[in-house]
Design a protein around this nucleic acid. Structure first.
Length: 831
RNA sequence: GCCGAAGUGGCGGAAUGGUAGACGCGCUAGACUCAAAAUCUAGUGUCAGCAAUGGCGUGCGGGUUCGAGUCCCGCCUUCGGUACCA
């Protein structure tokens, strides 16, 4: 649906709104760019509180004298959809950009080619402008705490200070962010991210060679690796020095991959005395570690507890940490070399993809290269047909191949990147409210009627991706007055993931005799594991799928290399022999067939893992109702588990028996108008109550078992009474929508069963006349007692004590106390 | 490391502090059938016993309680999330 032009027309439309709006921090909402331009014209940047990437100030006059190209560039700093240089995982050999998922240990998952971090001009969405609201509004939502915590951590708000350090021999000041400005007297070095724009500028000639080598090394490392290998400390000295704002001391400036470009200012002041990473770095490179916090009074306190007295810290000496933080910020502000600052871990969302399948951007570039929106009345910009979906040699998106599509008559050129999957998925729920609307993404009246999504059931895998983007788009549309609520999803429950088994082959990192070399999983020893990369295999090729010994036979290997031509000539070491180019060469006589064991692990079912099981097959065999009920029956909704059809027959039997209750083998209806027995009514009403209760707490698996129990009992009673069986259809309708609808019509109703009222339990009919009491001695059950519902506790006690079994057990014991819980149990305390 | 969740038969799982293992799968036996499938009936935690019956049983060790899978304390294990976040 999101890939249909009549839908993505509105995705493009929303994108253009994002493009033409900026975030006003004073009003705390998005406003049209025209208003920003008006402000620039009158006041320049004076008095402006806007969310932007760079802080630049200019006067009204300076603005007016700028060229249109320069003005456009300035505006890009403010637009909510904007273009900037971003780092991507570039794979030269494949000529494409890869997702973090597709890169393993610096090599592409496909083919094992080197991948490097490369800056490219990309569209991004300024979600960071909404960070505070995305954080604050979480409070109002009826979501699980686990999910809220995840979003909070992802947004990662931290309070601290930005500090500017003058640089020795340079004009510029180096900006850093710290949550602990009080430790400023403990700074013994500075660290820049390798991508920091001043690395080249600051590196002195005698350190240049070492720095270039280091930067080359860092390029081969993905962000994920840089963040996961905590133990290895690497870095290079630039040769430059910063000047301490209070002491005037010279502080060496280093570059290290442990500092990330996109967080804070991309540079830190390192305080080895109070930061583990800084300390490890100082130890490795023998930098001083000045002590500045005295924690003697709080021996158990960690860094996070912020307990301690400041020492060796100039004017901060003798202060407690929280007081020192306040004092130092005040002083930094007075001296104009720093300010209080709130920082977020959340980063702007990369919105460009160099792929074919995606919504085209409704953007053209004029002769000056300025991005210009396609007018609303020319939307949608549709995805043109293409016969080659590869990126171009220069790394441009596949659409760039279509010169006649890209090049417009007036000399301007179309954007050739496409939008990512989450573009369409960020607002689809709004389209459901008014799917056919041709003049708006959804009509105002419809939006007012439906408002937001009352109840959203989704997997945790969307916790910080989809759910964050959708909230952001929704808030933006709310600012525009286009949706009535500030949040899209009021209540949210995380269902467990249906997992799959991921099957992979081990590929050696090093080629053997110039060929790719795969090793059967049963032959790989633990110690050699780091020398191999797991290459996922389409599970259709695998024999004994899901077992420890799942494998590819010769046929499977043939399919594998046909599917992955880059491994056409690879060597497959199978143990008993070697398979290559469709031939199996046994090592010794007697080995007949190849058996390439795959590595199996339970994980999410995902297109990228090639382990998706299509429910169509199950639906074709068992029907959609059965599939639906079996999924419910599997277990608690929030629990993840691998997909397994082992128990599906039970549900299938239930549905067939259910049908057989109503319809005879000759197709005739079996219902009678006879008055139902009391027991039948009780069974029905107890089932109604239990199903309603369990539905309320989303315990769907127990609902299904209540239906099974109900059916078993009604079958035992040979129930045909319409007074019982008619409400039962309505009760089952949400669980088995098709079969119930069919039965509903067969028993003579016209409308849909799904519009009929849901049955309510009659409390009068719920209670059984007799209750079977367990009789325990000291908490151990020794006998049972059947008694009428209204029996008084004292009578129950007498009856229990007189049971023969109980008398036998009580021989030689003294009864000390009898506990009777009416309707529940009887316990005799004896000793 | 931190945060979160969970440990119950051969398996998926059930149990407001009150009969542990509901319901289903699987398995065993029987009925129907020439036979099989399908269907139906019965049994199925474990140990001892022909049986009646009894002992033991919810990861491990303690505790609270008339009574603990459930509550409390301490451990173990597994799964999920997350991490050079300055």
């Amino acid at each position: 649906m999101t890939s249909d032009p009549s839908y993505y027309r509105w995705t493009q439309w929303i994108f253009l709104r994002l493009f033409s709006h900026w975030y006003d921090k004073a009003a705390d909402k998005a406003r049209p760019v025209e208003e920003l331009i008006a402000h620039f014209r009158q006041h320049g940047t004076h008095g402006l509180q806007a969310f932007s990437a760079e802080y630049r100030s200019f006067s009204a006059q300076e603005w007016s004298s700028m060229s249109p190209v320069d003005q456009a560039e300035i505006l890009m700093n403010y637009r909510l959809a904007y273009r900037k240089e971003s780092f991507v995982n570039w794979c030269e050999a494949l000529g494409t950009v890869l997702a973090n998922d597709e890169v393993k240990d610096g090599l592409s998952e496909r083919g094992g080619h080197p991948v490097e971090r490369k800056p490219m001009l990309q569209w991004s969405l300024r979600i960071t402008a909404y960070a505070e609201r995305l954080l604050g509004d979480l409070e109002k939502l009826d979501w699980s705490d686990a999910l809220k915590t995840m979003q909070r951590n992802w947004i990662g708000r931290s309070e601290g200070a930005q500090v500017f350090f003058r640089l020795d021999g340079h004009q510029q000041c180096l900006e850093i962010f710290t949550t602990r400005p009080d430790t400023i007297f403990g700074v013994s070095f500075m660290v820049l991210a390798p991508e920091h724009e001043w690395v080249q500028l600051l590196t002195t000639p005698d350190h240049k060679e070492e720095m270039d080598a280091y930067l080359t090394y860092v390029k081969t490392r993905t962000e994920r690796e840089r963040q996961s290998e905590v133990k290895q400390v690497t870095g290079v000295f630039t040769g430059a020095h910063a000047i301490h704002p209070f002491t005037g001391e010279l502080i060496p400036v280093w570059v290290s991959e442990y500092v990330l470009k996109d967080y804070g200012a991309g540079a830190i002041m390192a305080v080895p005395a109070d930061d583990e990473r800084d300390r490890a770095f100082a130890e490795k490179f023998q930098l001083p570690v000045p002590e500045i916090i005295d924690r003697k009074e709080w021996p158990d306190a960690g860094r996070e507890d912020r307990r301690g007295w400041l020492v060796n810290s100039g004017f901060l000496d003798g202060m407690l940490i929280p007081d020192a933080i306040e004092a130092v910020i005040r002083r930094l502000e007075q001296e104009g070399c720093g300010a209080r600052r709130v920082n977020y871990k959340l980063r702007d969302a990369l919105f460009s993809r160099q792929r074919y399948w995606g919504e085209p951007f409704p953007i053209v570039y004029n002769r000056d290269g300025v991005a210009v929106p396609v007018p609303d009345d020319q939307l949608p910009v549709t995805l043109p047909d293409l016969d080659n979906f590869q990126p171009t040699k220069e790394g441009k998106a596949p659409l760039a191949r279509l010169a006649e599509w890209v090049q417009l008559a007036d000399g301007s050129m179309r954007e050739t990147d496409t939008m990512p999957g989450y573009a369409g998925s960020s607002w689809y729920f709004l389209r459901y409210m008014d799917a056919g609307n041709a003049t708006s993404f959804a009509g105002e009246e419809e939006l007012q009627y439906w408002k937001e999504v009352d109840f959203y059931i989704g997997g945790t895998e969307h916790a910080v991706g989809h759910l964050m983007y959708a909230r952001f788009w929704h808030k933006f549309l709310f600012d525009l007055g286009r949706v009535p609520t500030a949040e899209p999803f009021r209540r949210l429950v995380n269902q467990g993931m249906i997992q799959g088994v991921i099957e992979s082959l081990w590929l050696a990192r090093e080629k053997k005799d110039g060929s790719h070399y795969f090793l059967s999983a049963d032959l790989l020893e633990e110690k050699d594991r780091s020398q191999y990369v797991a290459i996922p295999v389409l599970i259709d090729f695998v024999r004994d799928y899901g077992t420890d010994l799942s494998y590819l036979d010769g046929e499977g290997l043939g399919k594998f290399v046909a599917w992955r031509p880059e491994y056409k000539e690879a060597i497959f070491e199978c143990g008993q022999g070697v398979w290559q180019n469709g031939q199996f060469m046994p090592k010794k006589a007697g080995a007949v067939s190849s058996r390439m064991v795959t590595y199996s692990e339970v994980g999410k079912m995902s297109k990228s893992k090639f382990n998706v099981i299509n429910p169509d097959d199950v639906v074709a065999t068992y029907g959609a109702d059965c599939f639906r009920m079996y999924e419910m029956f599997l277990g608690p909704i929030e629990q993840s588990k691998p997909w397994d059809t082992k128990g599906i027959d039970g549900v299938s039997k239930f549905l067939r028996r259910f049908w057989a209750m109503y319809v005879g083998e000759d197709g005739k209806m079996l219902l009678s108008e006879d008055a139902p027995g009391r027991e039948m009514e009780r069974i029905l009403h107890q089932t109604i109550r239990k199903v309603r209760d369990d539905l309320e707490r989303l315990s769907l698996n127990t609902c299904i078992s209540h239906f099974m129990i109900c059916l078993n009992e009604l079958r035992r009673l040979e129930c045909r009474s319409a007074a019982v069986l008619e409400p039962l259809i309505r009760l089952l309708a949400p669980f088995a929508p098709h079969i119930t609808e069919e039965l509903w019509h067969r028993i003579g109703h016209q409308g849909s069963v799904h519009l009929a009222p849901y049955p309510e339990a009659d409390p009068e009919l719920l209670l059984a006349d007799e209750i079977l009491y367990p009789v325990s001695i000291n908490g151990k059950k020794r006998a049972e007692l059947m008694a009428p519902r209204e029996t008084a506790p004292s009578d129950l006690e007498r009856a229990a004590l007189s049971l023969p079994d109980i008398q036998r057990w009580l021989l030689g014991l003294e009864v000390k106390k009898v506990i009777v819980v009416p309707g529940r149990m009887i316990n005799i305390v004896a000793g």
